[in-house]
C-alpha cells in the first residue's frame, strides 16, 4: 500500500458515494448511463471472484463494497428511479466493448484458467466502461455538475493507480503490464473530460462541451 493507491481507492469510494447521493437526493438517475453502470457491475463480479478463495481485510472489504454498491445503483436505476432514465440517449453499442475485452482476455491472459481469463476481461472492460457515459454527455452536450464530479472522481481513481504502479515498480519491482496498459488507456479516455472539467466546472461554470 502506498499513498497513490490509497488516494486512488478513496477517489473510487467517493465516486460511488457521489453517484448514490445524487440519485437518492434528486430521486432521479437522469444523466447517468445505465449501460456504463451495468458494465461496472460486470467488471467487479468478474474481477473479484477471488473473494471465494482469497481474504485480505482491506481488499476483501473494498471488493464487497464495490460489488454491493454497484448492484444497488442498478437496483435504483431499474426499480424506484426507472421512470427518470431515458434509454433513447443511452445508445452506445456496448457489445463491441464486451466483445473486444473478451477477445483480448482469451488471447493474452497471464494464465489460461477461467479465473485469470475473467480477471483479464475485467481489466480491459473497466478501461472502456465509461465510454457509454461519456457518449451520453457528448450527445446531450452538457451535464449536471454533480454528474461531472462523479465522472472526475472515477477517472482520478485509475489515474492515481499509475504513480502507484511506478512506485511499486521502483520499490519492489512489481510489474503488472496488463493492468498498466489498460490503466493508461483508461486514463487517456478521460483526458478530454478532465480538461473540460478543470477549465469549466472548477471555475464555477456549467459543464458544456465547446
Amino acid at each position: 500500500m502506498n499513498i497513490f493507491r490509497l488516494a486512488g481507492d478513496l477517489f473510487h469510494l467517493i465516486s460511488i458515494f457521489i453517484l448514490i447521493h445524487k440519485m437518492t437526493t434528486s430521486k432521479s438517475c437522469s444523466g447517468i448511463s445505465f449501460k456504463s453502470q451495468a458494465l461496472y457491475l460486470l467488471v467487479y463480479v468478474t474481477r473479484y471472484l477471488d473473494l471465494f478463495w482469497t481474504f485480505a481485510l482491506y481488499n476483501s472489504t473494498m471488493k464487497i463494497i464495490f460489488i454491493g454498491s454497484s448492484a444497488y445503483v442498478l437496483h435504483l436505476m431499474t426499480g424506484p428511479f426507472k421512470p427518470t432514465h431515458d434509454p433513447n440517449i443511452d445508445t452506445f453499442k456496448v457489445r463491441y466493448l464486451i466483445g473486444g475485452a473478451a477477445i483480448l482476455a482469451l488471447l493474452f491472459p497471464y494464465k489460461w484458467t477461467p479465473a485469470e481469463v475473467l480477471w483479464t476481461f475485467s481489466i480491459w472492460l473497466e478501461s472502456v466502461a465509461i465510454l457509454p457515459q461519456l457518449f451520453m454527455v457528448q450527445r446531450t452536450g452538457a451535464a449536471e455538475t454533480i454528474t461531472t464530479h462523479y465522472i472526475f472522481a472515477l477517472g482520478a481513481y485509475r489515474a492515481l493507480y499509475i504513480p502507484n504502479w511506478i512506485y511499486r515498480y521502483l520499490t519492489s519491482t512489481f510489474w503488472d503490464p496488463l493492468s498498466i496498459i489498460a490503466g493508461v488507456i483508461q486514463t487517456v479516455l478521460y483526458s478530454d473530460f478532465f480538461y473540460i472539467y478543470y477549465t469549466k466546472v472548477l471555475q464555477g461554470r456549467k459543464f458544456e462541451l465547446p
Binding site: 481488499n59 497471464y110 480477471w119 519491482t173 512489481f174 503490464p177 493492468s179
Partner: peptide
Amino acid sequence: AAESTKHDEL
C-alpha cells in the same frame, strides 16, 4: 521477481 498474477489491487 515478477508478481504479475498476484492481483493484490482493486
